[in-house]
């Protein structure tokens, strides 16, 4: 167990190194840099002034030097300065992390809490009107882009309630936070919920036909105990894997949802940073997101053991 965790942690370091090289190079391959963007915003084309900015920001140095400066800065806890706001990157990123974390957490919670039970119901009531209805719902969730769904929700709120559930100022209480984020979380979590629902359904259908389920029934167990204690526990493994993968995919949905609901989180900020070619901001944000995804996947792998004792790692 311990050796497995150590191996996974070492693998994490290799993965993050690969991500750091990839994001560093990809950013520099994309045409244009911050000097181009700054001058673009002013409609200017003075090469001398642009060159001055390039030198000031150290963009004239060779790529290995720039990469080395970034990585060694990271080890020292120095994430550098944003090219746009001219403030420390850490000061820009830190306040936004809890916002996105809450939104993503709520979205995942919504996805799991709605997707798993509805998937179970759909499987148990296979080929009934309820099953058809839930399958249509899950297909809708997979087909509807989250920005479109988000806009529809906003329009409906304005039309029917005369208000709009977008981010305003920093809420004072935790409960206010939840209230403010619940609608956007539902919008972004709908797709994941639909996916989980379909996976749970197909997985449950397979398990429900197994011999041990029939045995459980023949022992006289209640239908609830059969479904949840015996069937669901065995059917849920692929769903857990999906939750890990969805955490990464959620980021894409969050970018759109944060924009539509005007939530000042990490995802929306990342898009703006890319637009401005704000290298220090993008590099560190992507590294942070990569770290989250890697850690979540590790947690998912470890969760297998809890759910299925047959799994033994490191042996």
């Amino acid at each position: 167990m311990l050796s497995y965790i150590i191996r996974r942690l070492l693998l994490m370091i290799v993965t993050l190194f690969g991500v750091s090289v990839a994001i560093f190079l990809l950013l520099r391959i994309v045409p244009g840099n911050i000097a181009d963007i700054l001058f673009d915003s002013a409609g200017l084309i003075d090469p001398a002034e642009k060159q001055k900015i390039i030198v000031d920001l150290g963009l004239d140095k060779s790529l290995p030097v720039q990469y080395g400066q970034w990585i060694f800065g990271l080890f020292r806890g120095d994430l550098g300065y944003s090219y746009v706001s001219e403030k420390p990157v850490i000061d820009e990123i830190l306040p936004r992390i809890p916002i996105t974390a809450r939104l993503a957490g709520l979205a995942l919670l919504f996805a799991v809490c709605s997707g798993v039970p509805l998937g179970v119901i759909s499987a148990v009531r296979q080929n009934t009107w309820l099953d058809y209805g839930l399958r249509i719902l899950s297909l809708s969730g997979l087909s509807m882009p989250s920005f479109w769904l988000g806009l529809l929700i906003l329009m409906a709120f304005v039309h029917y309630f005369g208000t709009i559930p977008i981010y305003e100022r920093q809420p004072a209480t935790y409960w206010a936070w939840i209230q403010m984020l619940v609608i956007p979380a539902a919008a972004v979590g709908f797709r994941s919920s639909a996916l989980i629902m379909r996976l749970t359904r197909s997985s449950m259908l397979e398990v429900l036909r197994q011999d041990y389920v029939r045995t459980a029934r023949s022992k006289g167990l209640s239908e609830g105990a059969v479904t949840f204690d015996h069937a669901l526990r065995n059917a849920v493994l692929p769903v857990i894997t999906t939750i890990g993968v969805e955490t990464a995919f959620l980021m894409g949905g969050l970018i759109v949802t944060e924009t539509v609901f005007n939530i000042p989180g990490v995802a929306r900020f990342l898009v703006e940073a890319i637009r401005w070619r704000d290298y220090p901001m993008v590099q560190n944000l992507v590294m942070f997101i990569a770290l989250v995804v890697v850690v979540v996947n590790l947690i998912v792998d470890l969760a297998y053991m809890l759910v299925d004792p047959r799994i033994r790692y490191g042996q």
Partner: peptide, 10 residues
């Protein structure tokens, strides 16, 4: 892309 528009003009 906006980032290269004015550079192309110059």
């Amino acid at each position: 892309d906006s980032a290269v528009w004015y550079a192309r003009l110059v």
